[in-house]
Amino acid sequence: MIALKGVSREFQVGDETVHALKDIDLEITGGDYVALMGPSGSGKSTLLNVMGCLDRATRGAYLLDGKDVTGLSETELALVRRHRIGFVFQFFHLVPRLDAAGNVELPMVFAGVQRGERRERVAKALDSVGLSHRARHRPNQLSGGERQRVAIARAVVMGPSILLADEPTGNLDTHSGREIVELIERMNANGLTLVVVTHDPAIGRRARKTIAMRDGLIVNGMG
């Protein structure tokens, strides 16, 4: 479960202070499915990054599964990301020199998971996204939809409790996009908390909750 209390995020751009997030209060319960919507620059990506511990709030408190992560060190935050959070990006961010299995394996390599166990979990993760037959293909040998599925397998391989997706269909055709949405919704159905940043109203309608943002503020009631 995610709880933000009075979270603000400010950037210094030249002499100007940009208020990307203004005093946000938000709670997302475990297993929920939330769409974050709003125009560019509304602060939705910043909010996602703060929730994913890639960014820190300037003010306010962030409780993740009941634990305050606001004051954690860089290393502690890295460990939180490693074990609790999975990321899916618009541009997949696969490592080009590694094949699909290598990309899925990557988080486990740095987490110190044993080789044998890694192989099993890679196979399972690739199977869960329907790409077992593509394990030895490099990213440039895969279609956009397949790449995003590899990225999803990588995001869930460490068994996180939250999946954060930043425009996961933004770089895909409608058909592949639908498949990806169905895939992450299936993972949500298995208990993973799902937060999707999107421009696509269709996804917004599918989510259990939609949060609309503008100018760093949440502008709708949680609905």
Partner: peptide
């Protein structure tokens, strides 16, 4: 650069 960003996102520490 983007690979390093990804490494950070999946929880690779600075030290690593």
């Amino acid at each position: 650069t983007s690979e390093i960003g990804l490494m950070k996102a999946v929880g690779v520490t600075q030290r690593q």
